[in-house]
Every structure is written in structure tokens, then in C-alpha cells.
Design a protein around this nucleic acid. Structure first.
Length: 158
DNA sequence: AAAAATAACAACCGCGCGAGG
DNA sequence: CCCTCGCGCGGTTGTTATTTT
């Protein structure tokens, strides 16, 4: 069976950037009622959005407990080591970084860290050095091979 | 100074999973 | 038990800002 799009083309559903007015509606609705019921929330809150869009907006920008702004060096190192352990499990990584969301971390990884690792000759997937890979303990499980993480951290630190 | 290229970031999309019927 | 449905996830795109030529 074909999965119908979660956000039906039911006229006038807005997409794209959120306006301050929309944010306000969403915030006040969620303050009064709790989270949850995303499917039917937009209508109740008077928003011309699909529930998914509302959820994302809340989770990544409007929630009161989100830290904004630059990632600190510590946070960056955390991301790198957690990524070495978990791979692209952004939500897992986010749990290790209070106030940061999976989406934010994912973005940061893709736009900042990945690029720099590559430049430094470190494979962003395996966290192994691409240049003198050869003689290292390749047979160990990745997780046990702390060398990779250490190497990565040293490298990223310039 | 203007255009082109690249980076940054917010948001969208489809899919899988688990809860409830 | 099987089937349906919403939620959350991860990959990806679209748009704006910044940098380079």
C-alpha cells in the first residue's frame, strides 16, 4: 500500500521559513497543552502547517532548554568522540550534549567538522587516518581502538 | 564593484519502528 | 497475532549569507 503523504495537500498548508507570529502561536499552544498530538496540533493551534513541521520547529528552535550559538571546543570534541562510537546516530549523540539537538549537531558535523577532518586526512566515517593507516590494529573493533579517536581529536585541534 | 562560487543553516521528505486497536 | 498510524530519525534540499575571483 502506498503511503499517503503525512501532510495532505489539504489546501493552504504553509511551508518554508517560520514567521515570528507562527512561532508565537506554537509556543503558546504548547505552553498550555503539553507536547504531543502533533498530527492534530496545527489545527488546534490555528496554524496552517503540517504537524511534522510544527514538531521540528519546536524541537530545534522554540524549546526553552536549547542552547544557542556557537559550539564550544568541548562540545566539538564530544561530538567527534561520540560520533566515533555511534556513527551517524545523531539523536544518541545529542543525548550526550545537553541543550543541543540532533539536527543542529548533524548540520554542524556536515558543514564544519567533516570538511575539516577530510582536510586533515582523517576519514570522517571511520575516524581513521587516511594517510598512514597501514600498520594500525585494523582487526580490533572500532570502539576499542581509541587511537582513532585520539588521533582525530589531536588532528582537529590544529 | 559585480558576479560567481562556496558555506551555513533552517527546514523538508520518506522510511522504519513501536504502540495500540 | 496482524494491521494501522503517528512519531522520530537521518539524509537531503532550498535559501540566504559569505567569500572568492
Amino acid at each position: 500500500m502506498v503511503r499517503t503523504p503525512c501532510c495532505k495537500p489539504e489546501l493552504g498548508l504553509k511551508k518554508g521559513a517560520w514567521t515570528p507570529e507562527e512561532d508565537q502561536k506554537l509556543i503558546s499552544y504548547l505552553n498550555n497543552h503539553g507536547e504531543g498530538g502533533w498530527r492534530t496540533l496545527p489545527e488546534k493551534a490555528g496554524l496552517k502547517r503540517c504537524g511534522k513541521s510544527c514538531r521540528l520547529r519546536w524541537a530545534n528552535y522554540l524549546r526553552p532548554d536549547i542552547k544557542r550559538g556557537e559550539f564550544t571546543e568541548d562540545e566539538e570534541l564530544s561530538i567527534i568522540s561520540l560520533h566515533a562510537l555511534h556513527g551517524n546516530k545523531w539523536s544518541d549523540i545529542a543525548r550526550g550534549l545537553p541543550g543541543r539537538t540532533d539536527n543542529e549537531i548533524k548540520n554542524y558535523w556536515n558543514t564544519h567538522i567533516k570538511k575539516r577532518l577530510i582536510k586533515k586526512g582523517v576519514d570522517p566515517v571511520t575516524h581513521k587516518s587516511l594517510i598512514s593507516e597501514t600498520s594500525k590494529s585494523e582487526n580490533l573493533p572500532e570502539i576499542l581502538n581509541n587511537q582513532n579517536i585520539i588521533q582525530t581529536i589531536i588532528t582537529i585541534n590544529e
